[in-house]
Design a protein around this nucleic acid. Sequence first.
RNA 1: GGCGCGGUAGCCAAGUGGUAAGGCAGAGGUCUGCAAAACCUUUAUUCGGGGGUUCGAUUCCCCCCCGCGCCUCCA
Length: 466
Amino acid sequence: MAVRFFNTLTQQVDDFSTQDGKTVRMYTCGPTVYHFVHIGNLRTFTFQDLLRRWLRYRGYTLNHVMNITDVEDKIIRNAMQQGKTLGEYTEVYEKAFLEDIDKLRLERPERLVRATEHIQEMLDAIAKLKQDGYTYVSDGSVYYRIAQFPNYGKLARLDFSGMKSGARVDVDEYDKDDARDFVLWKQRKEGEPYWDSDFGAGRPGWHIECSVMAMKYLGETLDIHAGGIDLTFPHHENEIAQSEAITHKTFSRFWLHAEHLMVEGQKMSKSLGNFYTLRDLMEQGWQPDVIRYLLTSAHYRTKLNFTMDGLRSHASSLERLRNFKLRLDGEKFPDGTNTQLIERTATALRDFELAMDDDLNTAGALAAIFEFIRDANSAMDGAQFTAGNREPAQALLAAFDSIFDILRPVEREGGLSDEAIDALVNERIAAKKAKNFARSDEIRNLLLEQGVILEDTREGTRWKRK
RNA sequence: GGCGCGGUAGCCAAGUGGUAAGGCAGAGGUCUGCAAAACCUUUAUUCGGGGGUUCGAUUCCCCCCCGCGCCUCCA
């Protein structure tokens, strides 16, 4: 069964393929580095990470390009206010972005590209559009003339028939011939950063950077273009208009869009006070692995309700997953091989894969893993889980974790050393043997205060860090 | 107003034209010196409300209510 994705372009779930049968040419819209990215941005980037990992799991080679928008109105405004150059201003947030995605264990794309490093390519593209009659100049800025591009609206499925061409529909600060037209090159304003060009001093519009950088590194036709759902229109629609006007070829075969998340049941906004960055959440004591787990657990095309309760719930759930891994890796099992359990493991892997193939149904994939864990725990309790079952089960967890990447605990600094913990654990075992339960419990509590949890099993005491 | 998505147990969240996954939380139990972990039982006769199609609908159609998104630079 092939990997299938919901394609915004066709409005249905389509079998995925690449042009050359192997390499996925993938472009995703990255951050605008004017501030720290928020949890909603990170939801979209987490989806992109899952997408990458699943494609690799299915044998594809990745060629993924992500842009960093480092020239834009808010960036210019903030940089000017702070008396900084664009680069001085944006490097702080670009660095912060990279730190954040590292904390969430989001893989780096094969290539991260900055808009400001592709100004010449953008100018070349605008020149080509001008030559083919797709542009006009108004108040010194260069605009794209939508009326020249008949397919406009095919992605967002917007009906423009009711809109009057040439009407000044809104009070935009720029004069446009048609409300749908958008700027390719903005004329310089006094005091703002600018680049010299044949179109006059100015700076690029937003949409052109993605068309240009995507095609420069990935060719004229992409396999996948992905981003947040709000980018469908106008950003992605405009990217199509620009790119296809230049090449007369399909810009991207698949368009994947991640839904937004809600925070505590409401739209995330600064005014509601529910606007979180990863840093905010970590200051509140939430670990990034729990946040990653919450973001991966719901299907990417549903509105995910991000709540503190949800984080608590997922922290517990994550403990269950890790407890199982500890048990699987550390416990002694009877010799032999329970073939029924081997089959059960294979079924779990198959269910996991089927769910992921089906438009990245992470909730379904998790269910397959949890059902297996229950059965395996049960078998272990009943001494039915044998030594020969360990490796297949570990392979299943490895497959799962190659996508979800949550089983490895976050590294902590400080605290007791392994040796110190072992010494105390041994002292407690001796106390228990002597039926000195007061001392035994004292040690257990002492360790608990240090974030170490003890579990007495049939084979002795094992410990883990909280 | 136009277009679109969604409303499933206390919370989160899958799913299908044939009788409701999974996680968290709660209750009871097994195990344990006590815990922890794990397991077992239990918690939606029902999938926003009302019609319709059908042998049968949570799943398809229509209407209504509610939430949300897009409709010019917001993931």
